[in-house]
Design a protein around this nucleic acid. Structure first.
Length: 323
DNA sequence: CATCAGGGCCCTG
DNA sequence: CAGGGCCCTGAT
């Protein structure tokens, strides 16, 4: 796609997330690999967002004076209707879990030796996913059975070939392709972008969303168990991907029922100082100590160590990540 | 130079 | 429910 979508209209609105709200911890997750689908810098997030097939540009930053208010600038091609603004606000609230009540977690962490300091440091950090379910699935597809550098390359190839270039606030991004845009693309074409056997997943996931356009919104209302049942029916969604979706996208704070080998080693170190601890021991520990907050607790520990990695060298973590 | 496992999942037996 | 195969790549 050569044409660039220029979002020239700018409109500001105020958001009032539930407090406490840790802006930086919520909108930027250092454990995620960087992609040109959003950008975070210095307490400000830029994000193209696609709703009802229309692409908007979102800029989020804390209000300079009012600590409980988050400012959102919406960039658009056309002047926004009130209804559109309401839709965007409500979607952003969902994606950054702005209505969450984490009081139970705060109380739990306060009495927990492992969590206490980390929770205080990041108090108000919400689980978030800047992307739609379909977009997140595309990310998890490139994540599977590949090292990070290859995942980055696969997503970049897909975006530059099928994504839409979006410009707002003097910045350029790629917005994801639509499920319908995958329909006429062959597996061989996808394989030429070095995605390998994942080509089939892209095709199948896209046709699933084409047939079930409201799937994400239906799953939002389901219990963890029922949501998992629905998600696992999608081709390419196994236990690891399902866990990511349940937690990051659908905010099931207890979605820690499976841990992949590489995460097992990291959690082993974080909890027991030993990377050889088997995953079922870690799962049992988390369930016992953190109960219905166990994935959120794990998330706090996980993101904290990745934050620390930005300013200090953590040898054992470098060895385990293998970029 | 070759071999190999990787931020999983599908499919088969 | 265990295990082989899968695309491609950087590490060894």
């Amino acid at each position: 796609m050569t044409d660039v979508i220029n979002l020239i209209n700018r409109q500001e609105v105020d958001l009032s997330p539930s407090v406490p709200f840790h802006f930086e911890g919520t909108v930027y997750k250092p454990s995620h690999f960087p992609a040109s689908v959003d950008y975070y810098e210095n307490n400000c997030l830029w994000l193209p967002i696609r709703l009802n097939e229309t692409i908007y540009g979102i800029q989020l930053y804390p209000h300079p004076q009012e600590p409980t208010i988050i400012k959102m600038a919406i960039f658009s091609e056309n002047v926004l209707a009130d209804e559109e603004i309401r839709t965007i606000i409500s979607e952003v609230h969902y994606r950054f879990d702005m209505d969450a009540d984490l009081q139970g977690f705060i109380q739990l962490a306060d009495k927990d030796a492992i969590l206490s300091a980390t929770e205080k440091k990041w108090r108000g950090m919400k689980v978030s996913c800047a992307f739609s379910l379909y977009e997140l699935l595309c990310i998890t597809i490139v994540l599977q059975n590949a090292q990070v550098s290859r995942s980055v390359n696969m997503l970049k190839n897909m975006l530059t070939t099928y994504g839409r270039k979006v410009r707002f606030d003097n910045r350029e991004f790629f917005s994801f392709w639509l499920p319908s845009e995958m329909a006429n693309i062959t597996e061989d074409e996808l394989r030429s972008l070095k995605v390998g056997y994942r080509a089939k997943s892209f095709k199948k996931v896209s046709s699933f969303f084409l047939q079930n356009p409201n799937f994400e919104y239906q799953v939002r209302n389901l219990s963890k168990l029922n949501a998992a049942k629905e998600l696992r029916q999608i081709y390419g969604v196994g236990p690891a991907t399902c866990g990511y979706l349940l937690f990051e996208k659908f905010h099931h704070y207890d979605a820690l029922d499976y841990i992949s080998p590489w995460e097992t080693r990291i959690f082993g170190m974080l909890i027991f100082g030993d990377q050889e601890v088997p995953s079922d021991v870690i799962l049992g520990y988390a369930k016992d100590k953190w109960g219905r907050w166990r994935m959120l607790a794990a998330h706090y520990l996980f993101e904290d160590i990745f934050w620390r990695r930005k300013t200090e060298s953590i040898r054992w973590l470098d060895d385990l990540i293998r970029l």
